[in-house]
Amino acid sequence: MNLSKQKSRNQKDSAMAGTKTNTIVTRIATYSILIIMTFLIFVPIFWMISTSLKTEAVMFDTPIELIPSDPTLESYKNLWSAYPFLTYLRNSIFVVSAATFFSVSISTIAGYGISRFKFRGRSFYMSFLLATQLFPSIMLLIPYYKTFKTLNLLDSLYGLVIVYISFTIPFCTWMMRGYFNGISRDLDQAASIDGANRIRVFRSVILPLAWPGIAATAIYAFIAGWNEYLFALVFINTTERKTVSLGIGQLIGEYRVLWNELMAAAFFALVPMVIIFIFFNRYLVDGLAAGAVKE
């Protein structure tokens, strides 16, 4: 430690002189990297939108058209007329919101418990949560199915909510634990000395500081549920209970991939996610501001 401090002191003078150019260089580097990344992200999105605006004949024509010369909304229309995508959307929003809410609530509490208390079986508990992530999920399919049949929860949106809760709890708990570990214990202790019990400390002191972590965790849980396919496929039979990911999956036929409709559906599924994400992103920023004020 001492050594490195000394070293950095020695560098101080030269650093001071070069601060201005340094900042500019850093900024140029930052923006270049971010612009390259943005480009890499938008290439497939661009191709997706471009494809969704083509007819099947144009799609398979060479030389290909990067931007369709004669764009058409046909695939979007087909999607609306042939599949009840609005119903899929409603189902997805219900299932995923409910699962996210419960999963994040339970995980936040559990994450706090692991982070703050020493109790018997604590390390076992953590390994146990971890171990649940290490088993290939395809092998969970049949036992889940049997259990849910007994509980009469097959072909039910509530059943799917439970599945998604169980899938996301381990990661969410680990993430919240990591987050709570970063919040100083002094705060708990200060509040405890004031006479507050642990639950009140948690609710009124720690929770407000934890919003960025909770928001990040919630985004994870939401996306994981939104994109889940395999269990939804096996559990849901009725068209009226299908989710968006099932709607997308059924466009991939054995004989024909309906690329343009598939891309339209993917684009369509993306929009609510982006809206929700932008909303939560503000929370991330707000959470930061709140934390800063308290400190």
């Binding site: 339970i106 995980s107 509490i109 559990a110 706090y112 418990g113 692991i114 703050r116 208390f117 020493k118 109790f119 018997r120 604590r122 508990y125 146990f128 949560l129 649940t132 088993f135 969970l140 889940y144 259990t147 439970i162 599945v163 809760i165 169980s166 709890i169 381990p170 708990t173 642990r198």
Partner: peptide, 19 residues
């Protein structure tokens, strides 16, 4: 120890049953 268990039991139960 008791507080720790109270906080962690809900998640543990769900994971026990389902995983």
């Amino acid at each position: 120890s008791r507080s720790g268990m109270i906080f962690t039991i809900p998640a543990a139960l769900i994971m026990l049953g389902l995983v």
